[in-house]
Design a protein around this nucleic acid. Sequence first.
DNA 1: TACCTGCATGGAG
DNA 2: GCTCCATGCAGGT
Length: 824
Amino acid sequence: MRRVHCGCIVSVHAFTLLDAGGIECVACARKNVVMGSSSSWSPSLIFHSSLSERFKEYSAKGWTQLAGSGPVPWRQAPSLFNSPVTQPELHSRVPYEVDLSTGIDRLNVCDRLSTPSLEKKKVEDFSERLMNGTWKPGTRDIHEKGNAGSENFPCINHGINCEEQHNPCLTKFQSSLKEEPNPQFGLAVSYTSPDEANGQNGVSGTHLRPNPQPPLAKQFHSNLQNGTDSSGETQIRNGRPRPDGRGKNNLFPRYWPRFTDQDLQQITGDSNSVITPLFEKMLSASDAGRIGRLVLPKKCAEAHFPPISQPEGLPLKVQDSKGKEWIFQFRFWPNNNSRMYVLEGVTPCIQNMQVQAGDVVTFSRLEPGGKLVMGFRKASTASASDQDNEAKNSNGLSMHGDAEMADPTSWSKVDKSGYIAKEALGAKVAVSRKRKNSMLGSKSKRLRIDNEDLIELKLTWEEAQGLLRPPANHVASVVVIEGFEFEEYEDAPILGKPTIFATDNMGEKIQWAQCEDCFKWRRLPSNVLLPSKWTCSSNSWDPERSSCSAIQELTAEQLENLLPQCNPAASKKMKAAKQETENVDALEGLDTLANLAILGEGESLPTSSQATTKHPRHRPGCSCIVCIQPPSGKGPKHKQTCTCNVCETVKRRFRTLMMRREKKQSQKEAETTSKKQQTSLPDKVPDDDPPPCTNAENSSPKPIKIASEGSEDDPNRVKSSILPFKGQIDLNIQPEREEELSPGSDSGSMMRLLQDATDKHLRQQSTLTSGGNSNSEVSQTQPGGGPEGEKISNSVNLGASHQDIDRDHPVFSIKTSAPTSATG
DNA sequence: TACCTGCATGGAG
DNA sequence: GCTCCATGCAGGT
């Protein structure tokens, strides 16, 4: 009997093969040397629970199949971690102690370890990962970092790891990770004191440094996926990984247990119980729905739950974090030649725990006793790391380390932005997601965005745009929407590190990039596209400054002059943003325009100071024109008949705003009609009537008045000067004049949309108000003539919401750049 | 009609 | 092209 593993969670480069067999993490090895203890396997080690006892335990728990499944138990990792370690110093890492309690256990493990074919397989497996890029030296490989002995212990394979967890800087090493992200679950790391980590878990610096030693391929294997259940006995016996691609034993990161102290405390209370995180899962709408079926990740189910061979499955006793026991039916459905594992009857428990879709349920094993414990984390606290994983998974670009996610204070702007951008995209997809009745909405496992992310979404849209770097060698086509220029690419932009483009003294185009570590700015060729995380060490273009210790070329002053700039990709957007601020109410697209109108009278408009470059409304689900503009949108023009998202949204928003506007208006009309008839001209109002609005608008060029040009309170004038379309937006375009809109006018095409939407609304409005409520707002009779007396209030004043608008004259008018629309 | 059950479907990785 | 899995949905109760 001997120990096959020191019990620590180790990274691939942080353990050593022991002569006696098995492995030990570097830290423990060192520690053992220091302590004078043997760094190898003490024969006296720790086998506290016999296999038979295990079986009894399982049987007692109703895992009857387990007992008869022969070799299966070694797959039941969790139960094997319950070793009540006698060595005090080991307590802190008990959950990851791998103490085989029986000769059988050991035999299984050792046999497997010594099986040449298996080793070969391990090598192949590792090699495969190495080859396909899923494993990289210097990165941490979650599953593979488990030791050979742990291959049979999913808990280790899952629960391991992560040394870096409480050290954000560790995540630096992750930047290149594409698939194997994050070691968020490291119980031993996350939840031990630094001392413990350093001293006992070997968590500290040891694992932070890339191990110069080559990874030991033979140790990289996990049989997490080996056993499927009793039917997979052969696999279980021979430890052969599944032949399919998943045989690489990867449990999806999103299922890695990420327990917090609170979680543990919640589960274990004050007892001395040892909690072994198994896995976790974010509740989907289906999971949290009334059906009461919690879909279990297949790998997790097969790894941590008793094997089942019949679809009916087994009753499974689960204890919640409050100690209350529940019995679920653990079963599966045949599905596509595979299985779909579910826990049935979870509704009461879920309700009891008051969790919902988007929250995370955690499964762990409580030792001694091997109780299966179901905990939960609310979405607000659960998913930063989850999101991280998601981001990596979906982007294939590790934009940040997990530790960073765990520690928002360590987030770099780039990371945030990249993250945001990703999530924004996800949200975009979520919006278009056709699934209905989804309780999950944007919280969909793959698309959800949690609160923390929402916070992080509060970046300027320019920043976000700026981070969308064009793919190399791609040339953008510039599209102007709402006066804002957008660069469009055939392919979606990729996330990159924002840099500052400049021209050096030689006239050569360069760019400046800031190191993530030292924050020094480094000069780079202009055509270099950097990853979201970039450090001096990656500065292959300037070896002299490929280290953070190198002096920054730029002086503070130079940098100051440089910073306001931004890369060309963003400059145009910045320019638009500047235009926005310069134009006082310069609108943030039609979205803002519409909302200004929706605000209605009496509600303050954004002041110029408020019209910052911020676009706070950009958030998941935002349907504003900026957000919905597809990154790969084609063509600069949107025809009137265009039914793209942008156009449809514009139309829809206008219809909505008009309806709302109308409601407000109608409420006041009764009170003001008589007054308005006295103070305003029904059909025409002198142009020179000073608008009640003040300030900047008045100084703007006087809009070309068309139809309702009129009323002195005509907010058209306000908006006309506000809007970025040559200072005016006029939707009072006569249909016959419509063709006069410049085909090349970007605003024209958009204005057609506006007009279209507006016309629709106005027709409705006129119908509604034709009963005698036509007042000053009805400023023009539709040339085409409608029913008698049906005057089309075809001026929709989106500026009506301006605080200075005469509320008695809620004239709707949008002035566009329609060239010289005839006055009525 | 509502709910349950089991399988099918299709998006995503 | 495969697997996973969230969810739809048909059929049964």
